[in-house]
């Protein structure tokens, strides 16, 4: 058997300087993901704090 080089070589980008067509949309999506994550982290820390106070 031989390794499937075509599948293993990854995506070779012919013009690395070129941005994706929907770059603005992607930036918005990324900002949203990071914001959501921050909110989840804050909510989790508040829940922990409340449960710790409750158990105390």
């Amino acid at each position: 058997m031989t390794a499937d080089i075509h599948l293993l070589q990854g995506k070779i980008v012919t013009d690395p300087e070129q941005r994706p067509k929907n770059v603005l949309k992607l930036i918005e999506e990324l900002a949203l993901e990071i914001l959501n994550e921050e909110e989840l982290a804050i909510a989790a820390s508040q829940t922990n704090k409340t449960s710790a106070e409750g158990s105390a």
């Binding site: 995506k11 070779i12 980008v13 690395p16 070129q18 994706p20 770059v23 992607l26 930036i27 990324l30």
Partner: peptide, 9 residues
Amino acid sequence: TLIPAIIKF
């Protein structure tokens, strides 16, 4: 997707 590179995995 956003960060350019010559080869991507």
